[in-house]
Design a protein around this nucleic acid. Structure first.
Lengths: 193, 193
DNA sequence: ATATATCTTGAATGAACATTCAAATTAACG
DNA sequence: CGTTAATTTGAATGTTCATTCAAGATATAT
């Protein structure tokens, strides 16, 4: 008989940013309290516990990123154009050095997938949805005649995703924009060939 | 006027395993005390603090892995054979599901490079050394005639490393051996072409 | 054999941690 | 407008954290 006062999406985006900056384990409930402007009791009432908040944040993150992904492709007149724009956006994120521009899903895969089965399931599913979207993109590219060779769209989507994961990790060790951008360019070539 | 009683390498390998299983932040000093059989005082005396122990463990890890890497290549009669064997070994690790077979350097890059400059420097350097080794491998492969196309050995080494980082991350979300092995196979093709 | 420098021991420290809870508050419904 | 069920509040909980330190032990050099 009383609805929550806070804006759920706004709270989840604040939590997302906190997790992206410090990672799950180093983000304390105090950090989350500060970031969300919620008292501990409210957080526990709404999300059960810290992990529940992470899972909810991951869900929101995936929604947001999926929408963004679709926008990027929708803004281009061809699938190959969309893929180029998408890779450019990833390069920008890698080079920015802004922690809140890293991929929360990837960060979570690396930090907690091994430790927590529930999180692993959620992340594995997000990865599959992403791959399925990219598979559609490559199918479209086949029709457009942008692809050489005989690899399936599925295989290409897989290689692309692996390449993006790798690019994001590599860019943590080596941040020179030219290097990152060259790798992305090569990835595009490999995946279309 | 008294030398340490513990075996440094043995302690560092125990610490490595602890860090690999839980990650840096979730590994408590108590975990490390148990893993190393060292009392807190001894750890602090020898390694300054928890981060010092991580850095020392990372150094040892890199030494161990470098030796292993060289062994794998030395056991093959050609550079291309070595590369294949190397990728096979990485696939095995990814598929094993054994936390102590994950790459500590990659785990650290993802977990703490963003947060700690000193660690970032160490990890960036390890990455460069690895890349330089792989560059030599591709130079050898050029001589052997195992390579198509016109890419430099440097570029190929870069793509390989990115692909391996990506493969390791992807395998956390998707562990089917066939999938992981196919990706590695495709990576070999892409990098030689 | 003795002195000395260093290591080992493990209890103690205080801070930070995730979580709980009872009281206060308030929206929604009749 | 009163009742009810839910949320909000923030202090309190007990645990675990990284780190310190003084006392005890022991290798090494002389």
């Amino acid at each position: 008989m009383r609805s929550a006062e806070f804006d759920r999406e706004q709270v989840l985006r604040a939590a997302m940013n906190a997790f992206m900056e410090k990672g799950y384990n180093k983000t304390s409930m105090q950090d989350l309290k500060r970031a969300t402007n919620l008292h501990p009791g409210s957080i526990y009432c709404a999300f059960e516990n810290k992990k529940g908040l992470l899972l909810a944040a991951l869900e929101q993150y995936n929604q947001d990123r999926t929408a963004e992904l679709k926008d990027i492709f929708a803004a281009q007149s061809s699938a190959i154009g969309g893929l180029k724009a998408y890779l450019d956006s990833i390069v920008s994120e890698c080079v920015s050095g802004d922690p809140t521009q890293t991929c929360l899903s990837q960060k979570a895969i690396n930090e907690i997938a091994q430790q927590d089965e529930e999180a692993q399931g959620v992340l594995s599913n997000q990865c599959k949805l992403w791959q399925s979207f990219m598979c559609d993109v490559f199918t479209q590219m086949e029709r457009e005649g942008s692809l050489e060779g005989e690899r399936s769209a599925e295989q290409r989507a897989q290689s692309l995703i692996v390449g993006i994961y790798g690019l994001r990790t590599y860019s943590q060790a080596q941040k020179e924009p030219k290097v990152i951008s060259d790798i992305a360019h090569q990835l595009l070539i490999d995946v279309c060939r």
